[in-house]
């Protein structure tokens, strides 16, 4: 299997920290990985990736944040064939918004429409809940790795 692609999209940088935490945890398990900002990632590269972890926050009124939006637009426009891609998804949001973690749902459904297969539950961090980003993300990752064979 090729390296796990960790892709993050963010407005104020918390998703980047989550991506780094996940990368460190994969490193600890000896799993090869690469971290990229969504806005710097060519969507066509996903056609040759085996496994990716998508991390995005939600902004505005359930909208995609600054760096997820262009990536999502590129997916919708280029329509890459993602049938060989498996992926997991983690969202950052805030439960006091009606549109709690909408962006990660939108992104995951677009990926699925393009043929990719989601594995595990979508992870969700609630900024109003008080739990740290790391604790939520690493708890989610542990469950994912228990459920799914990545190596």
């Amino acid at each position: 299997m090729g390296p796990i692609q960790i892709l993050f999209g963010t407005e104020s940088g918390n998703a980047e920290m989550v991506a780094d935490d996940i990368a460190d945890a994969l490193e600890g398990r000896g799993l090869e990985h690469e971290v990229s900002a969504m806005e710097n990632f060519e969507v066509d590269l996903l056609t040759s990736a085996d496994f990716a972890i998508f991390i995005t926050s939600t902004y505005g009124d359930g909208e995609l944040p600054m760096t997820t939006a262009p990536f999502h637009d590129a997916l919708v426009t280029a329509k890459p064939d993602l049938r060989s891609l498996r992926f997991a998804a983690f969202g950052l949001g805030d439960r006091t918004y009606d549109t709690y973690n909408n962006a990660v749902t939108v992104l995951a459904s677009t990926l699925t429409e393009l043929g990719a297969t989601q594995v595990g539950e979508t992870g969700r961090h609630d900024a109003s809940g008080g739990e740290s980003y790391s604790d939520t993300a690493l708890g989610w990752l542990k469950q994912l790795l228990d459920d799914v064979a990545l190596d």
Partner: peptide, 8 residues
């Protein structure tokens, strides 16, 4: 904003 992120 990209200059004031937790990582930057």
């Amino acid at each position: 904003s990209g200059w004031l992120t937790p990582k930057a």
